[in-house]
Structure formats: structure tokens, C-alpha cells
């Protein structure tokens, strides 16, 4: 449906791109990245709000790179909602009908206010709405314009955590109910994992990995993505004394799978280590140890900790199985 080809945009000292990716019709595409990685800029570029770009943007095979935003039929919801303060909730939702022919306006409006549960808000001043209410009104306004593509910029970041789950369910339901395609940018892994069919990881203006949500979140293909996704204990293959082609690859060790002991056990890899520091967390201990002059981080249960009587400065063995080592 949407195809981005070699997109490049420079703004002061920040460069977005080059980016190339495709978004399939009726899919939920999440762009996951840190704050300041250029996610919002990318959405604004897709919407036609940023000019002087290099590269091409295609919609259903048609080049729309130079098409004005009002002609693209793309809905946009910002993280701070941008509800027009000079209009009531109802006027905000119906704003697009001033400029667009919207089929079955009345039925759509009734359906939207029921779906997003905003019936009681229609005559309210937007300044008196909560974050969650503003969010639903902003969504209703964007959907009411019947966009071909809905662009969501961190739509849940200003919403009270208690409402996040219900809004995520609403977001997920939009695609089928309104026959839409969604691009959603966020820095939140939980959102991405719940909502996405496909995820693109974006860092410093570049997309480093694209794939099915499960694949991207569990199998990062680069150190940068692994670090960003929170993978811990990243080591080169030589750390594990691999002699084959794995020697130059990178691996991540799950902190929950590390076992400390004082004698060799049935685990595949066991290395001598010295406990550096211990942090007491509510239901577990965080243990930082030195192995081959590298720091390794492990989480161990309170029971295991008491059994081992670990102390800072103590020497022991750190053991892991190869199944607990993820290839990056």
C-alpha cells in the first residue's frame, strides 16, 4: 500500500534516512525508537508536511512525493493530540467535513462516538478533557476524515497508565472496523509488542531492522538494536571460546538464566568469576560479576542467593547453557 523509497531529509544537524520500507494494506506497522530518533519527522514526511525531501513516497503504486498533505487522505494523531481549542469536541471531530466529502457521515459519526465512548463529551470544551478523553477525541477526528492511512505519533504517551490497555485494544480494533492501515510510532516495547504486525526499529534517523513483531523483539540483528531492546550481557563469540564461524558473531546472555555455583555442574559453559556488587530488589537480587575482565549482570532469586551465600568480592563459577545464549 505505502512504499517509501530512499527517503532522505536533512533538518539542521539531523539527517533522516535513507529509508526504504513498505507498509501493507490493513496492517499495523509500528516504528519503534528512542526519543529524538526522527520518528515524528518520518511520520510528518509521510504525511507530506515536510518539504524538500529526497526519495519517493508511493501510495498504491502512485507517486505522491509532491502531493499536498490535504490531498493525501492520511490521518494524523499527535502525542499531545492538538485538538483545536477554538472548537467544541463535536466540532473538532467533524472538522474534516468542511473540506471533504465523507460518505455516510451520520452513521460514521454515531458509530465512532459509540466505539470510542465519547458520547458524553460532544458539547464539552476540549480544555476540560482528561488525557484519555482527548486521545479518543483525537482518534475520532482522524478516523472521521476516512483516511487511507492513519499515522499515530506516540498516541499513548500522554494517557494515564490505567487507560492505556483499553485504548490499545481500541487501536487494534480500528483496522478491521474502519478498513484502515496504521503506522504508529512509539518508544514503548509493550505497545509495540501488543499492537504491531510488523516493527521497524529506528535509531538516529535510520531504520536498523524491520520484520514481524516477534522476530524483531526476540531476535535483534545488530548490537545497536539488541542494546536498544534491552538485551543484556552482549559478548563476542570469542568470549565463549567458540572456534568456528560463531567466533566473530555477537551473543546475548539472558540475566535470568545465569547460575552461580562453587563447583562445575551440568551447564555447558562455566567460567570463574568474582562478585563485584549486589543490589537487593524487592523479589530478587541483581548481581554484577567480573568474568574474563568483562562485567556480567545476573538476576537471581532470593532463595538461591541465600543458599549460595554470595558476597561482594567472593570468587565462584558463572554457568550457562547454550540455549540461553541468543545469537545477534
Amino acid at each position: 500500500m505505502l512504499k517509501i523509497e530512499n527517503l532522505l531529509l536533512k533538518k539542521e544537524d539531523f539527517t533522516l534516512g535513507e529509508l526504504s520500507f513498505e507498509v501493507k494494506k490493513n496492517s499495523y506497522f509500528v516504528i519503534l525508537g528512542k526519543t529524538g530518533s526522527g520518528k515524528t519527522m518520518l511520520l510528518e514526511t509521510v504525511a507530506g508536511l515536510k518539504r524538500n525531501i529526497l526519495g519517493k513516497v508511493y501510495l498504491n503504486g502512485i507517486d505522491i512525493t509532491t502531493l499536498q498533505p490535504e490531498k493525501r487522505d492520511f490521518g494524523f494523531v499527535y502525542q499531545d493530540f492538538m485538538l483545536f481549542p477554538n472548537m467544541s469536541v463535536g466540532e473538532n471531530i467533524k472538522y474534516s467535513s468542511r473540506y471533504k466529502q465523507i460518505k455516510n457521515q451520520k452513521e460514521l459519526f454515531v458509530d465512532l462516538i459509540e466505539f470510542l465512548q465519547i458520547k458524553g463529551l460532544l458539547n464539552r470544551d476540549i480544555t476540560h478533557l482528561s488525557g484519555g478523553e482527548k486521545q479518543r477525541v483525537a482518534l475520532a477526528r482522524a478516523i472521521y476524515s476516512k483516511p487511507k492511512l492513519l499515522l499515530l505519533d506516540e498516541p499513548l504517551s500522554a494517557v494515564d497508565p490505567t487507560f492505556k490497555n483499553s485504548i490499545m485494544k481500541l487501536l487494534k480494533g480500528i483496522i478491521k472496523r474502519y478498513d484502515m492501515t496504521i503506522i504508529h510510532v512509539t518508544h514503548n516495547f509493550k505497545e509495540a509488542s501488543f499492537l504491531a504486525d510488523k516493527i521497524a526499529v529506528m535509531l538516529d534517523g535510520k531504520i536498523l531492522q524491520i520484520g514481524r513483531a516477534n522476530d524483531v523483539l526476540n531476535r535483534p540483528t545488530s548490537i545497536e538494536v539488541a542494546k536498544f531492546l534491552g538485551f543484556k550481557n552482549i559478548f563476542k563469540g570469542s568470549f565463549f571460546d567458540f572456534k568456528d564461524e560463531r567466533r566473530d558473531r555477537y551473543f546475548s546472555v539472558d540475566p535470568n538464566r545465569i547460575l552461580f555455583s562453587y563447583k562445575k555442574n551440568d551447564k555447558e559453559f562455566c567460567y570463574e568469576c568474582r562478585i563485584d556488587s549486589i543490589l537487593d530488589i524487592t523479589d530478587h537480587y541483581k548481581v554484577f560479576a567480573k568474568v574474563k575482565n568483562r562485567e556480567i549482570f545476573a538476576k537471581i532469586t532470593k532463595n538461591m542467593f541465600d543458599k549460595l551465600e554470595l558476597e561482594e568480592g567472593k570468587d565462584c563459577l558463572m554457568c550457562i547453557d547454550s540455549k540461553d545464549v541468543e545469537i545477534i
Binding site: L49, E70, R72, M82, F84, N86, Y95
Partner: peptide
């Protein structure tokens, strides 16, 4: 007036001049 108000108005079908008269000027 945050420029993003104009951006949203434009994605909703308003031209630049429409966005100016309906959103920016009233605000």
C-alpha cells in the same frame, strides 16, 4: 500557536489558507 495544529488541520483536508483562517487566526 503550535505549528502542529496547522499540520493536523491540513491532514484533515484544509489547505494552508483554510488552516490559517479556521485555526491559527482564531487561536
Amino acid at each position: 500557536v503550535d505549528e502542529k495544529y496547522e499540520y493536523v488541520a491540513r491532514t484533515l483536508g484544509a489547505s494552508k489558507i483554510d488552516a490559517f483562517f479556521t485555526i491559527v487566526l482564531p487561536m
